[in-house]
Simulated assay, not measured.
Amino acid sequence: MLRIRLREWLYILLLAFLLGFSISGFVASLHGQNLMPMAFLGLLTSGYIFILSLITTEINNRWIVKKMPEFLRTPFSLLLALLSGFFGAIGGYLTNETFRIVDLHLPMSKALSLSFFLGIMTASLGYLLYKLVSLQRREEENKRLLLEEHIRNLESQISPHFMFNTLNALAELVYQNPRKAEEAILALASLLRKSLYFEPLITLQEEIDLLKDYWKVISLASS
């Protein structure tokens, strides 16, 4: 299941407005209409389509698609996108019929055909955007995995060297200052215990605790 982020929704809204403005400008030039009212109607229709797409996508992602078989998820999502485009276009048509923003003289049959075409366009663009967002998510996941692998490699290189030096220092400290040796061993045990449950992202307090244990081991072992 692919969740759309707020920033991505804003990009989609901008794209919808650009397409709405471009299509309305093209229609205005074909029919000799005034550009500004036609552009306003195009932006309004794009807004309707965007709002319906946003609502249906969020409802689908949160409550519907998780319960569906895998092979039905993409076709069902495309159907919702088509319906969003269709009913959004119908909303624009009915708004224009009510408030006479532009004098189109468009019969209902042609309005339905145009709305269906816009629905297909919405579904096609939705599928394209889905593929682009999926690719971006895959790249982000690959970067995250590479970062985790890099961190593990660094740990595997640093840990043996650190342990070797620390244990050598503790072996000498046991005879010189048993109390400090005991404190250093306890700090080392705490550090190793936390390292066993390594997470790529930890809280600031956990990071501070790790640094405290590390510094305590180093300072006691080298004293």
Score class of each variant (00 low, 15 high):
1 M>H: 03
3 R>N: 10
6 L>P: 06
13 L>R: 03
13 L>N: 02
14 L>A: 15
15 L>R: 04
16 A>P: 06
18 L>Q: 01
19 L>I: 12
21 F>Q: 01
22 S>I: 04
24 S>A: 14
24 S>N: 06
25 G>D: 02
26 F>N: 03
26 F>S: 07
26 F>R: 01
28 A>T: 03
28 A>N: 08
30 L>R: 10
33 Q>M: 13
37 P>R: 06
38 M>D: 04
39 A>G: 01
40 F>I: 10
45 T>Y: 07
48 Y>M: 12
50 F>T: 04
57 T>K: 10
58 E>S: 09
61 N>P: 05
62 R>P: 05
63 W>S: 13
64 I>H: 02
66 K>G: 13
66 K>T: 04
68 M>A: 11
69 P>E: 03
71 F>V: 06
74 T>I: 15
78 L>G: 06
78 L>V: 06
79 L>C: 08
79 L>Q: 03
79 L>M: 12
81 A>I: 07
83 L>G: 10
84 S>C: 04
86 F>G: 01
86 F>S: 05
87 F>H: 08
88 G>A: 09
88 G>K: 00
88 G>P: 07
91 G>M: 00
95 T>S: 15
97 E>Q: 10
97 E>T: 06
98 T>S: 10
99 F>T: 02
102 V>I: 06
104 L>K: 05
105 H>Q: 12
107 P>T: 00
107 P>A: 00
107 P>F: 07
111 A>L: 00
112 L>V: 14
113 S>N: 10
116 F>D: 07
116 F>T: 00
118 L>V: 08
121 M>E: 02
122 T>F: 11
123 A>N: 09
123 A>R: 08
124 S>I: 13
126 G>F: 05
127 Y>R: 10
128 L>Y: 09
132 L>R: 08
134 S>G: 02
134 S>T: 12
135 L>S: 15
137 R>N: 10
138 R>D: 14
140 E>M: 05
140 E>N: 01
141 E>A: 11
141 E>Y: 01
141 E>M: 03
145 L>W: 00
146 L>R: 15
147 L>W: 11
148 E>D: 11
149 E>S: 11
149 E>G: 07
150 H>R: 15
151 I>T: 05
152 R>C: 04
154 L>M: 12
156 S>M: 13
161 H>N: 09
161 H>D: 11
162 F>K: 02
163 M>E: 15
163 M>G: 01
164 F>M: 11
167 L>Q: 13
168 N>M: 11
171 A>I: 02
172 E>K: 12
173 L>G: 04
174 V>A: 11
174 V>W: 00
178 P>H: 06
179 R>L: 10
180 K>E: 13
180 K>W: 02
181 A>R: 09
189 A>W: 04
190 S>Q: 00
190 S>R: 11
191 L>N: 04
193 R>P: 00
193 R>Y: 09
195 S>Y: 09
195 S>L: 09
197 Y>D: 13
197 Y>G: 05
198 F>T: 04
198 F>S: 08
199 E>A: 05
200 P>Q: 00
200 P>L: 07
203 T>L: 02
204 L>A: 11
205 Q>L: 12
209 D>T: 00
209 D>C: 01
211 L>R: 15
213 D>R: 01
215 W>N: 14
215 W>Y: 13
216 K>R: 14
217 V>C: 05
218 I>P: 02
218 I>D: 09
223 S>D: 13
